[in-house]
């Protein structure tokens, strides 16, 4: 009320200019141009001779969904590799988060949290390269394996479908379980401790409090973790690109959607197809994001209702 004489609103607009100029220039215009490209025939023969752009309507999309282009297989690969990493990730993260926050055990957690989170800050491409060398035919893992089992034949990890996928999933797991543990810990710490105290008085054991109190109360965060992980999994690129050498190793069984997109962008330079694939990715990510959006806004309104008069 006091500042009726001077309006500061214009400063609000001035301060957001850099952010929105950068957004429009580097995100919005490229996004629109990507969408536009998806309706054109536009590629380079051997990377040099330009064909198009010619308007072709939805041809790129129908081309992409043709069986010989294997798009569904690549979506399947992405999903399988994501799932292989996510199942142990959510299991152990929940377990560790509940241990770390257990009021009766009172564990010393500092060092574990630091170590568990470490792989997350490491360059994914370097992690991929490291695991590729460690698991290679004459690498240390095979060396240890041979000395333990007495076998003379090394395991060819990168020549079999499931070992290769398994290694990619293992890297994803190692990179993300610490992050998820800390997220879930924060969620569990947000639960009113008196709930646990009264459960304890009523004679509930740790398993019961975990399933009856912890899980129901952190369900929104669990869903959030699930969906952000799914969106992250959809974008999986660095690790499969390095480990499976551009996705092509072992009959494309570790080719993910974004590795496939990268092929159109950098190898075959087919911008029409790349555009159509980008739009499909956008739609899938948008649907998943909508779920999060409604989830979090629903939580906020619930919170507001609960807090009522406070502030």
């Amino acid at each position: 009320m006091r500042r009726k004489s001077i309006s500061y609103a214009k400063w609000g607009y001035i301060f957001i200019i850099p952010f929105f100029v950068a957004f429009i220039m580097f995100n919005l215009i490229p996004l629109i141009s990507t969408f536009k490209n998806s309706f054109y025939e536009y590629y380079f023969i051997q990377g040099y001779k330009q064909v198009g752009p010619n308007w072709v309507g939805l041809d790129n999309y129908s081309e992409l969904f043709k069986a010989e282009n294997d798009l569904m297989k690549y979506f399947g690969n992405t999903f399988i590799i994501w799932l292989l990493g996510f199942i142990p990730q959510i299991f152990f993260s929940l377990l560790f988060a509940s241990w770390f926050t257990d009021l009766r055990m009172k564990l010393k957690t500092g060092a574990y949290k630091i170590i568990f989170y470490l792989p997350n800050v490491i360059m994914a491409a370097a992690m991929g390269m490291l695991f590729f060398t460690l698991f290679s035919q004459s690498g240390p893992i095979n060396s240890i394996y041979k000395s333990i089992t007495g076998s003379t034949e090394p395991i060819m990890f990168f020549e079999h479908v499931w070992t290769q996928r398994g290694i990619i999933a293992l890297i994803n797991f190692l990179m993300w379980f610490g992050n998820t543990t800390i997220m879930l810990m924060a969620a569990i710490n947000g639960i009113d401790p008196s709930l646990y105290e009264s459960a304890q008085i009523d004679g509930a054991n740790p398993t019961q409090t975990f399933w009856r109190i912890t899980i129901p109360l952190i369900r929104p965060i669990l869903l959030y973790v699930l969906i952000t992980s799914l969106i992250g999994g959809l974008q999986m690129f660095d690790v499969p690109q390095i480990v499976a050498n551009g996705g092509s190793a072992v009959d494309n069984t570790s080719m993910t959607v974004v590795v496939y997109l990268n092929k159109y962008l950098s190898v075959s330079k087919n911008y029409g197809m790349a555009g159509a694939l980008s739009v499909i990715l956008f739609i899938v990510a948008a649907v998943l994001s909508m779920v999060i959006f409604f989830l979090t806004t629903e939580r906020d309104t619930k919170k507001k209702k609960k807090k009522g008069g406070r502030k």
Partner: peptide, 11 residues
């Protein structure tokens, strides 16, 4: 939530 790869082509 929009993945960076989606606009990579245009960018």
């Amino acid at each position: 939530m929009v993945p960076a790869q989606v606009s990579a082509l245009g960018f």
